Simulated assay, not measured.
Amino acid sequence: MKKALLITSTIMMCLSCCAQQKINIGLKQQLDSILASDQGIREFVDTETSEARKDQLAKALGYSKEELKKKAWSLMNKIDSANFKKVESIVSKYGYPGKSLVGEPANTAVFFVIQHTPSQISKYYPLIEKAGKEGELPFENVAMMLDRKLTGEGKLQIYGTQIYSVQITNPKTGQKEFFEYVMPIEDAKNVNKRRKEAGFKLSVEENAKRFGIIYKAYTPEEIKKITNP
Rank of each mutant, 00 (worst) to 15 (best):
K2D: 13
L127N: 10
E206D: 12
E104D: 13
Q157Y: 06
K2N: 14
D187L: 09
R194I: 05
K70Y: 07
M13H: 11
L15C: 09
V87C: 15
L156G: 07
E177Q: 12
A58I: 04
G154I: 00
T8P: 04
K193M: 11
I185H: 03
K130I: 10
E153R: 07
K59I: 03
K71P: 06
E180H: 03
T47W: 07
N170G: 02
V45G: 05
L146M: 11
T8N: 12
R210F: 04
I114Q: 02
C18L: 15
P171T: 08
Y159E: 08
A60S: 15
L68F: 07
K28E: 14
N190K: 15
G132M: 00
G95I: 03
I163M: 13
L75I: 13
M145K: 10
L146F: 07
Q157F: 05
P138M: 06
L6V: 08
K71R: 13
V45T: 14
A52I: 14
K2T: 12
K28F: 06
A208R: 00
L31A: 01
K59T: 03
L27M: 08
E129A: 09
K193N: 12
R53T: 10
K78S: 14
K155L: 01
G135A: 05
K123F: 05
K172C: 03
I163V: 13
N77S: 07
T161L: 06
R42E: 01
T169D: 13
S16K: 12
S74C: 07
M144D: 06
F112C: 08
S81C: 14
V110Y: 03
T169E: 12
F179D: 01
A131T: 02
I223Y: 05
T108F: 08
Q115D: 11
D55K: 14
L68T: 05
P97L: 01
F139D: 01
E206T: 03
K224M: 10
C17A: 13
I158R: 01
A198K: 01
P220W: 04
I168R: 08
T169A: 10
Q29P: 09
Q20N: 14
L137T: 02
K71C: 08
D147C: 04
S203E: 06
D147S: 04
I223N: 08
D80K: 03
K85H: 13
G152F: 00
F200R: 05
S9Q: 09
I128W: 00
Y96S: 04
M145F: 01
I163K: 10
K85M: 12
V191I: 04
S203A: 05
I114W: 00
G95V: 01
L146A: 11
L127M: 15
V142W: 00
D187S: 10
L156W: 06
G40D: 02
S64H: 14
Q157I: 03
I213M: 11
T8W: 10
K149Q: 12
N170L: 00
Y215W: 06
K70C: 03
A4G: 10
V142K: 05
Q30I: 09
L75W: 12
V166E: 15
I34E: 02
G103H: 02
D147K: 06
I114A: 05
S100F: 00
A198E: 04
T47I: 15
E67T: 12
E51L: 11
N83H: 04
M145G: 09
K196Y: 09
K54G: 05
K78H: 15
A208N: 00
